[in-house]
């Protein structure tokens, strides 16, 4: 397995399959009454978060603990050395000096995990960097889709919303295309630039045109500040044209799924009732996220003996 996980670009179809398969067996193990595995006993994982996060940080923390690693949480907030002006590099070197084995990093600046990986010996896992990538989110999404359709090849996925600012979209497109899925990016042109066709995805400006044809409708969070930037006239108009409501759900194939990386803006990209339909697997995504992160820590830190065990 790779030393770092910075971008979905690094992962071949074989890599992804191995990560998903490992997650699958770990998921079975953690459904037992005693959920802990000893694999990473004595190893230290640091969550280094320069942006607020709930589910990703907790998910990584729990994943590391289930594998018996020691976990440090470092939030670069007003109470930390970062507030005193410590640079990213010095913070990284400080953690390195304490002997951490892996750094899980979230940062608002695209590329920060890749820069970090050049400064430290520890493994670096990208937990979301700017508008660049969020590979563990993509892997858990691939896992969730594969669980339903058994195979990712040929699955039709519409990713709807703010593609231009979304690291989730970038990682998902790369992962889905690598696995042979058909991806369509949907939203207004201010949020779905033509350049996205260079990623091997289709672009559509109409959700109504694609909704009846897709196996997965993946909704992205539409941040309220995008309205202030004049990327669309109002959240109301966005919801009317690109939101998933029950009328549009009624046009979906019977077995098609609704997904969302969270946190949701109910009433904007997703109607409140839609998020609670059986075809909505948003909470499964969360549960699968734990298994995916365990899988990655296991494969990246467990060493060859752990992998073969």
């Amino acid at each position: 397995m790779h030393k770092h996980l910075l971008s979905m670009d690094q992962l071949s179809a074989e890599d992804i399959t191995k990560i998903l398969d490992t997650a699958s067996s770990l998921r079975q193990m953690t459904s037992r009454p005693i959920k802990k595995l000893p694999t990473l006993r004595g190893r230290t994982v640091c969550n280094l978060f320069y942006e607020a996060s709930t589910r990703t940080r907790i998910s990584f923390e729990l994943a590391a603990k289930r594998l018996s690693a020691d976990v440090i949480n470092f939030a670069a907030d007003s109470k930390s050395s970062v507030a005193k002006g410590e640079s990213f590099k010095d913070t990284a070197w400080t953690l390195e000096a304490m002997g951490v084995d892996a750094i899980v990093v979230r940062h608002g600046s695209s590329g920060a995990p890749e820069q970090l990986s050049r400064w430290v010996q520890a493994s670096v896992l990208n937990a979301g960097d700017g508008a660049h990538e969020h590979p563990t989110q993509a892997l858990l999404d691939l896992y969730s889709i594969r669980e339903h359709f058994k195979d990712l090849e040929g699955v039709k996925v519409a990713i709807v919303g703010d593609i231009v600012h979304s690291r989730v979209a970038r990682s998902n497109v790369k992962g889905l295309v690598t696995m042979g899925a058909d991806v369509t990016l949907v939203g207004p042109p201010t949020l779905v630039p033509q350049q996205a066709t260079g990623w091997g995805a289709e672009v559509s400006y109409s959700l109504d045109d694609v909704i009846s044809d897709v196996d997965v409708c993946y909704l992205l969070r539409v941040q309220k500040e995008r309205q202030a930037e004049q990327l669309f006239p109002s959240l109301r108009e966005y919801a009317a044209i690109w939101g998933l409501d029950s009328k549009r759900v009624a046009k979906m194939k019977p077995d098609a799924l609704v997904m969302h990386p969270g946190p949701m803006n109910r009433g904007v990209e997703i109607a409140a009732d839609v998020s609670e339909l059986p075809r909505s697997i948003i909470l499964d995504q969360v549960a699968n996220g734990l298994a995916i992160r365990m899988s990655l820590l296991y494969l990246m830190l467990g060493g060859p003996e752990a992998v073969s065990a």
Binding site: S110, G111, D129, A131, H132, R170
Partner: peptide, 10 residues
């Protein structure tokens, strides 16, 4: 351009 889109840099 294509690269800024791909890298998530404005």
């Amino acid at each position: 351009g294509d690269r800024s889109m791909s890298l998530g840099l404005r």
